[in-house]
Design a protein around this nucleic acid. Structure first.
Length: 303
DNA sequence: AATTCACGCAACCGCCCAGGC
DNA sequence: TGCCTGGGCGGTTGCGTGAAT
């Protein structure tokens, strides 16, 4: 027999949409006391809400820095790709899109991207010899992707598959994660996986994003989106997390080309090495640089 | 203009996990 | 060691809104 829901005991616990007044009360309380200890929030504020409801309202709606709606093709690409790699680990995916909430990403996936990916999988099926036993699982999607000739161009990417280096990197992933970020997979391994061939559907989806827009408009959108993103990062008074810098760097790299490659790369280094202590970081860096030497000259990263 | 339908999103529900005792 | 509790997460629901008929 499980524990009763936290809100079960509350006769008179309010449900449904939050009012602006409730929002103000919650925000002002958190501004004074900080987030956390959610149990005490309804007690101390007089809000007739359960603690979970308060936490959700804060994390999904009221928290500063949240970007809502209008997912860019860039963000869609990240979501599709990470969903294929990680499955429905929305919190983990959200950690790569710092301005988005897991709930937002989950909703967007369920309402937009899932259909799109599914449709593209169906479209691509006649063209392939692969049998999709269960394309709903991330592992299968990734497995299919790993052998997909439609997406993966061996001639341009063989340098990304230096087994020696990849093994060296994988051997380091057991170090404790000292970062506060929510990660289910150490960053080095994530990045290594990221550089691997992507799921067929993901690749096709992203191809479709490009095709859906006029090339010039797509380029403008991409650049504007990236620059907006970067502008937010640069002008923000908040201290940037490494993952934020990572995303900004990747955006900037796309927009500005190789001129920012060096800067971008140092940001990538910082982001990757967040996970690791000194000696391991240096060791990882050596391996990473061997791979990245090829990466810099490879086809543009897909986002 | 009224009704129906589809979609998007905020919020809830229930399970799981980690930490404290 | 086991229980209790709070917090986190993913799945699902239900309402509001706009499009279609």
């Amino acid at each position: 027999m499980g524990r009763p829901p936290c809100c079960d005991n509350g006769v008179g616990v309010k449900k449904g949409p939050w009012t602006p007044e409730e929002d103000i009360i919650l925000v002002s309380y958190i501004q004074q006391h900080g987030p956390g200890n959610w149990r005490s929030v309804p007690e101390n504020t007089g809000l007739m809400r359960c603690s979970k409801s308060c936490r959700l309202r804060w994390t999904n709606y009221l928290r500063p820095g949240i970007k809502r709606g209008n997912f860019t093709p860039h963000e869609e690409g990240i979501i599709i790709h990470l969903q294929a790699l990680l499955g429905n680990k929305w919190a983990a995916i959200a950690s790569y899109l710092p301005q988005r909430t897991d709930n937002d990403i989950k909703n967007y996936w369920n309402t937009h991207l899932k259909k799109k990916v599914k449709r593209l999988q169906q479209q691509s099926q006649p063209d392939h010899h692969y049998s999709y036993h269960n394309t709903s699982t991330a592992s299968n999607a990734a497995a299919v992707a790993a052998t997909s000739p439609n997406y993966y161009n061996p001639s341009s990417s063989t340098h990304l598959h230096n087994n020696h280096n990849l093994e060296a990197m994988q051997s380091m992933v057991s170090y404790p994660n000292t970062s506060n970020e929510v990660t289910t997979t150490p960053k080095v391994f994530q990045f290594q996986t990221w550089m691997k061939p992507s799921p067929t559907a993901s690749a096709m989806a992203m191809q479709e994003f490009q095709e859906e827009q006029e090339p010039a408009a797509a380029m403008a959108s991409s650049i504007n989106g990236c620059k907006d993103h970067s502008a937010v990062m640069i002008t923000s008074d908040d201290k940037l997390s490494s993952s934020e810098m990572m995303m900004a760097a990747m955006s900037q790299g796309d927009a500005d080309g190789r001129s920012t490659a060096t800067t971008t790369f140092s940001l990538l280094e910082n982001w990757l090495l967040d996970d690791m202590p000194g000696q391991a970081a240096m060791s990882a860096m050596d391996s990473f640089l061997e791979i990245s030497a090829g990466f810099c000259c490879a086809d543009p990263i897909m986002f």
